[in-house]
Design a protein around this nucleic acid. Structure first.
Length: 511
RNA sequence: GCCGCGUUGGUCAAGGGGUUAAGACGCAUCCCUUUCACGGAUGAAUCACGGGUUCGAUUCCCGUACGCGGUACCA
């Protein structure tokens, strides 16, 4: 296996829908590995199944990568030496290689119709063997170039009879390879079926395409999810037949990301109320919208961070990493081999940490977007900055800035009068009338001075500060939350503060 | 069914023949705070099971159980 080649890795998505958490983590680990070793990160579009083409899915994938800050070095959008990077545009190349396999006896033509395949499966299906394979046991009973005469095969091909090309799996051989995460993995070839390599429409299957393209694109390390492990022997054999095992990339199969019950799915997201896709995805056929991490209020920094730690850690207690730190610290031998269950609570914690960590100027435009979505247009950036500093500790998701910051710009939407009404009395009314006029006539240099004055006034009316502090908060904020009430009042300015006091006073008047 | 990969608290996980088996999330209690958070402290909670090997297994080996993945002209 090659170890001295330039590091080149690829992420090879199939553009059939939203980009899943696990997909992004695969991108991330590829990216981290490539960057750590000064290599290239290639994105190749695996669109060999034309029946599953979904308009917009390819563009969507690149938007997600952009949001995550994981830029490819080569891809359909930014080109590269090994283009085209879309397999549908590489169709002719695969045929050459597969013909070579046939010529060498490693593959064969198969003319079986779907009905015939179904018949074979029905015939062989038993309780013991619920999924009969097209393998060495049955291939000599099927309609293929192994059982038909050469003449007949030529006749069928000339008459445009649909056919596929299948790999001829050897019998009783052990195929093994070293997985960077799992160590040596081996398979008995007798138990692997004769996988289709070239489909009837002339397109390659994944098995052929991945090997041919990894070779042509000089991929040095091939990383993918664990779901691919069972078909690895097919790929290893193809490498052996076509390009030699010495040229084969090093493999690593990443552990799966699990949901609350088994493999994480789009359904889990809907069911348990957390995103599964990186960004919002609308199925063009059904119009169904699946929420993404971005729109849910996640920062890309947090998203990357939490994904990195889902299956990898550097052995220290550190949990918060920037992308560049990840590039520096990442190593494949510290990637787990066991699947990891996705924990949304922990995911939110990561986002909270990043909101607290990131500077206000960086957060500002993102907060603006959140507020604008709630029809709050902010033109005073200085004020927004102050607000962000005041409330960021209280925001887990970016969308929390709506509740936490909106009342600085608009009167509270909901007014929790019930929190103060029961204990309301005339003394308090008198206090706030007086307090409003004090505020109106004086200018406080800072929140602290205002607080002193507030307490003085309360004392002079035989009120404990605590008795009027919460009412004051409710008047300004609408609820029992937020930063220090005098910080809020000071930032709101006396005009707005007095206005809100008076409005609530009016609401509290006995009818 | 068969094949493959796994199995340390509820979750993410460190550790790897002898440890009081780290840490984080979440949860609980307390402190701070006349709100809510932040922060700080404390606590409950873990080596799937059975055999070996060994003076000694959570750690190594073998089984079993369980989980997940695969078993398509899908990737």
């Amino acid at each position: 296996m090659s170890t001295d080649k330039k590091v080149r890795v690829r992420f090879a998505p199939s553009p059939t829908g939203g980009l899943h958490l696990g997909g992004v983590r695969t991108v991330l680990y590829n990216y981290l590995f490539a960057k750590k070793y000064g290599g290239d990160f290639v994105v190749r579009i695996e669109d060999t199944d034309q029946t599953r083409f979904v308009p917009g899915a390819e563009e969507y994938i690149f938007e997600c990568l952009k949001w995550c800050g994981l830029y490819p070095d080569e891809s359909v959008v930014n080109g590269g030496e090994y283009r085209p990077y879309r397999q549908s545009e590489r169709k002719e190349r695969y045929k050459l290689y597969v013909e070579e396999l046939v010529a060498e006896g490693h593959a064969y033509y198969a003319f079986d119709t779907p009905e015939q395949l179904e018949e074979m499966r029905n015939k062989n299906r038993t309780d013991e063997n619920p999924s009969p394979q097209y393998d060495y046991k049955v291939r000599m009973q099927m309609r293929n170039s192994l059982t038909l005469s050469g003449e007949e095969v030529h006749r069928l091909i000339r008459s445009n009879t649909p056919y596929v090309i299948r790999i001829k799996m050897p019998q009783n051989e052990t195929v093994s390879f070293t997985d960077m995460i799992r160590g040596e993995v081996s398979f008995d070839t007798s138990l692997v079926d004769d996988k289709v390599l070239l489909k009837a429409d002339g397109m390659p299957t994944y098995h052929l395409a991945v090997v041919v393209d990894d070779h042509e694109m000089k991929i040095s390390h091939a990383f993918r999810g664990e779901e691919w492990l069972p078909s690895a022997p097919v790929h290893v054999l193809l490498w052996k037949y076509l390009f030699g095992l010495d040229a084969m990339p090093q493999w690593a199969h990443f552990p799966l990301i699990l949901g609350p019950s088994g493999k994480l799915s789009k359904r889990d997201g809907a069911k348990y109320g957390f995103p599964v896709f990186a960004m919002n995805w609308t199925d063009p056929k059904t119009g169904e919208l699946t929420e993404g991490f971005k729109e849910k209020g996640f920062l890309p920094e947090a998203f990357i961070n939490l994904l990195a730690l889902l299956g990898w850690n550097d052995g220290t207690e550190q949990e918060i990493y920037s992308l560049s730190e990840l590039v520096e610290k990442f190593s494949m031998d510290r990637v787990h081999s066991a699947g990891a269950k996705f924990d949304y609570e922990k995911a939110k914690w990561f986002n909270h940490e990043w909101i607290k960590k990131l500077n206000t100027g960086y957060l500002l435009p993102k907060v603006k977007v959140v507020l604008a979505a709630k029809n709050i247009e902010v033109d005073d950036d200085a004020k927004l900055s102050t607000v962000i500093d005041l409330v960021k500790d209280r925001c887990t998701l970016l969308t929390d800035f709506d509740e936490q910051a909106a009342y600085f710009f608009k009167e509270p939407k909901i007014m929790e009068l019930h929190a103060i009404q029961p204990k309301w009395n005339e003394t308090k009314t008198a206090f706030f009338k007086e307090w409003a006029s004090v505020l109106f006539s004086k200018d406080f240099a800072d929140p602290h001075q205002m607080e002193e004055q507030f307490k003085e006034l309360a004392a002079s009316m035989q009120l404990k500060p605590g008795e009027v502090m919460m009412p004051f908060r409710i008047m300004l904020v609408g609820g029992k939350f937020g930063p220090h009430v005098f910080d809020i009042a000071h930032l709101l300015g006396k005009g707005e503060t007095v206005k809100r006091i008076n409005e609530v006073l009016k609401m509290l008047e006995p009818a």
